[in-house]
Simulated scan of single mutants.
Amino acid sequence: MSLDTVVEDIREEAHARAEDIRSEGETRAEEIESAAEADAEEILADAEAEVEREIDQLREQRLSSAKLEAKQQRLEARRDVLGDVREAVEDELADLEGDTREELTRDLLEAASGEFDEGDDVSVYGRSDDQELLESILEDYDGYEYAGEVDCLGGVVVESDQSRVRVNNTFDSVLEDVWEDNLQAISNRLFEQ
């Protein structure tokens, strides 16, 4: 065997080995590339899913916020309407005249008088516009006298030092009690719930 043949054999073997290495490298590169593409697709899918979750969450937050705001606006509108109704009732009570006003005032004074002992000196306060009416009604009560005005829609505030009792039977206090006791029914009727 000549040196040329040995060199040729080594060269061929080196080429074959280089071809095997190149082939293995290409295979390995394809595997790496394939794995990288799979990882990239998975990362992309995860990112898209995360974006969708964030979009859904943001949508839910905005929807909840909008619902809450709408509910608050409805409640505020209802409060305004209830306030207007209450104000209208107060105006009607303040504007009562004649027999109706006298009858209600007498009833409220009579209810309050049950809290006092016979012989007590009783002071009666009322709306300034009702002074004449109250003085007229008090003529029927011994020991009762008009003592001055109180800021109210009508009715009476009655007190006695002997009994240490003060009774607020004003239209305002009666309205407050009726209003609180019937607020749900009033609201239901106004808003047909």
Score class of each variant (00 low, 15 high):
Thr5His: 10
Arg11Ser: 14
Glu12Thr: 14
Ala14Tyr: 04
Ala14Asn: 11
Ala16Ile: 02
Glu19Trp: 06
Asp20Lys: 15
Arg22Ser: 12
Glu24His: 12
Gly25Gln: 07
Glu26Asp: 11
Ala35Val: 10
Glu37Trp: 08
Glu37Cys: 00
Asp39Asn: 14
Ala40Gln: 06
Ile43Trp: 05
Leu44Asp: 14
Ala45Glu: 13
Glu48Gln: 14
Glu52Phe: 09
Glu52Gly: 11
Arg53Asp: 08
Ile55Ser: 10
Arg59Cys: 08
Glu60Tyr: 06
Arg62Ser: 10
Leu63Tyr: 05
Ser65Arg: 12
Ser65Leu: 12
Glu69Gly: 05
Ala70Tyr: 03
Glu76Gln: 13
Arg79Tyr: 00
Leu82Met: 12
Arg86Cys: 04
Arg86Lys: 15
Ala88His: 06
Ala94Pro: 00
Ala94Lys: 11
Asp95Ala: 15
Leu96Glu: 07
Gly98Arg: 05
Asp99Ala: 14
Thr100Ser: 09
Glu102Lys: 14
Thr105Leu: 02
Leu109Gln: 01
Glu110Tyr: 10
Glu110Lys: 10
Ser113Ile: 03
Gly114Glu: 12
Glu115Asp: 13
Glu115Ser: 15
Glu115Ala: 15
Phe116Asp: 08
Phe116Gln: 06
Asp117Phe: 00
Ser123Tyr: 05
Val124Lys: 05
Arg127Ser: 00
Ser128Gly: 09
Asp130Asn: 08
Tyr146Glu: 00
Glu149Ile: 00
Cys152Ala: 15
Cys152Gln: 08
Leu153Phe: 13
Leu153Trp: 10
Gly155Ile: 02
Val158Trp: 04
Glu159Arg: 11
Asp161His: 02
Gln162Arg: 14
Val165Pro: 01
Val167Phe: 04
Asn169Ile: 00
Phe171Met: 03
Phe171Gln: 06
Val174Ile: 13
Glu176Pro: 02
Asn182Gln: 10
Ala185Gln: 10
Ile186Gly: 04
Ile186Asn: 05
Gln193Met: 07
Gln193His: 08
